[in-house]
Design a binder for these strands. Sequence first.
DNA 1: CGTGTTTTTTTTCAAATGATAAAAAATCAC
DNA 2: GTGATTTTTTATCATTTGAAAAAAAACACG
Lengths: 187, 187
Amino acid sequence: MENIDQFYPQLSGITPEAKADLGKAIKTFTAKKGQFLLKKGTVCQHLYFINQGLCKTFFLKGDKPFIMRFFTEDAIFTVLDSFVNQLPSTYSIYALEPTTYTCLSSAALLSLCQKHHCIETFYRKLVSNASINMMKRISELLEDNASERYADFVKEHRELLQRISLGDLASYLGITQVSLSRLRAAR
Amino acid sequence: MENIDQFYPQLSGITPEAKADLGKAIKTFTAKKGQFLLKKGTVCQHLYFINQGLCKTFFLKGDKPFIMRFFTEDAIFTVLDSFVNQLPSTYSIYALEPTTYTCLSSAALLSLCQKHHCIETFYRKLVSNASINMMKRISELLEDNASERYADFVKEHRELLQRISLGDLASYLGITQVSLSRLRAAR
DNA sequence: CGTGTTTTTTTTCAAATGATAAAAAATCAC
DNA sequence: GTGATTTTTTATCATTTGAAAAAAAACACG
């Protein structure tokens, strides 16, 4: 049984029984830099919690990569469409740094949800927050040009800048790394 | 008490008691074309279900509008960040056609969630689907240029094309309507 | 330290999109 | 139906971004 407290600093209102059951259901792993936590084409079976490290979720269009999001310490995430619908994922999850992560399977989560209302509430809040983050990302993609999106990212995630490559940042912003290099030079 | 059946063709697994309580909590309204269901700066207090009509959620950058999404018959939606965090919305909801819609307040939903586990499950699934839709939208904004996004929209929402103006579609795609007119002419 | 690899920058040219203005077409109000 | 208003198209020019290739810099590691 894992130390459950690490898994939910963001959780509140979990009953002791639910906490105990959750602790039995989770398992911790490590990935080296460059390893895949999930490969596209396979079903995303887990909710992931990052204890330590940095990952990206990304997909390819042809050979051009696009990054959906970066996840770092204390983030809880999954590839939602694959996870919910149990369909092969079009996204991969990739460790950009040596990463320690804790997993909760879809099956376990659903059964915990049925047994403990408070877990369902946790899951609902988790997905709500994911949605809110995505709304913000959509707004930025719509209203800002690449240069503004870069400035925004620097402002909001300055600490991440040191940890990700220019190429990965470009893939996140939806531009080529050459364009990003040009943007960066322009100031 | 409203006819609840219209409100949840998408729901399954709702108990009769929950259904009855839900029926007591909802209320139906109409909006004329051009009316606001929600004005930016006010807190989004409701979950909306569209019985009939067409709405857009949008925001302004300066005087340039951007459309987050269109909602039509049987859609259930809200402005999630405002709704969840009870903060003033940066988005407005606007009726593009005469619209009949049914509302469920945030307070009522939360209390229904506490009372009926199945309502919390419904809410969780609702937000999950919203998230999945947004993931898809982010992917499209990242990987496709305006011309591909337009072609995608035509393919996926041909029925909507007749109901929305070129300007609104451009605001949804994140380009100017002059650009969209040019794209359309190019084929 | 040196060499091979990866990442970032620079350059040039082409294509896509924005801004502005104006014309044309469609729609609306009465 | 007619004039006013709104929507869509067309045109021109400026800016942004992409594509490709090459140079420079940073990094990995024997």
